[in-house]
């Protein structure tokens, strides 16, 4: 099994590996990180066997490192994923993907059609109302956006 995976998604020298992405979320993660618009070598794998997730996806990006805000974006899609920073073929750092403690800024869209953030050019801002169920409270209109209604701004 390990061999098969290595064949499918080859190792990188330097860069970032995002592993254990639930297969159904892979394309969302690609989209939210804007990987379709950056100009570095990268490989994607999906529907790979995973004991934990059944089918998983993996993303390997050469010479690219991510900011905390990018990790926060992934957290709004899945907290299952693991992110490893690779230096010279070795994992030099494991970074945790978790829902931000306090504020989610400029990532999610407010569910309320009458919210000012959906009409003016305003960066959205939410407090994390319930981290476990991923519900966010808009700092402007005070309405709750839950996971089911969560839309990510790219």
């Amino acid at each position: 099994m390990e061999n098969e995976k290595k064949l499918l998604v080859s190792a990188i020298r330097n860069g970032t590996v995002i592993d254990h992405i639930p297969a159904k979320d892979l394309f969302k993660v690609i989209s939210i990180l804007g990987l379709d618009t950056i100009d570095v070598p990268m490989t994607f794998g999906t529907n790979l066997e995973s004991q934990k997730l059944g089918k998983k996806g993996v993303i390997k990006i050469s010479d690219k490192y991510f900011e905390d805000n990018d990790l926060n974006k992934i957290a709004l899609i899945t907290t299952e994923a693991r992110l490893n920073v690779i230096k010279d073929f070795k994992v030099s750092e494991k970074r945790e993907i978790k829902v931000p403690d306090k504020y989610v800024v400029g990532i999610a869209k407010c569910v309320n059609p009458k919210c000012v953030t959906n009409h003016e050019n305003i960066q959205t801002k939410f407090t994390v109302f319930d981290a476990e169920n991923l519900s966010l409270k808009c700092e402007y209109c005070e309405k709750i956006t839950d996971k089911k209604h969560l839309k990510i701004i790219k």
């Binding site: 309320n112 009458k114 919210c115 000012v116 003016e120 305003i122 402007y140 005070e142």
Partner: peptide, 8 residues
């Protein structure tokens, strides 16, 4: 009429 407008 928009919610959050005063805060903004």
């Amino acid at each position: 009429p928009l919610e959050g407008s005063a805060k903004y």
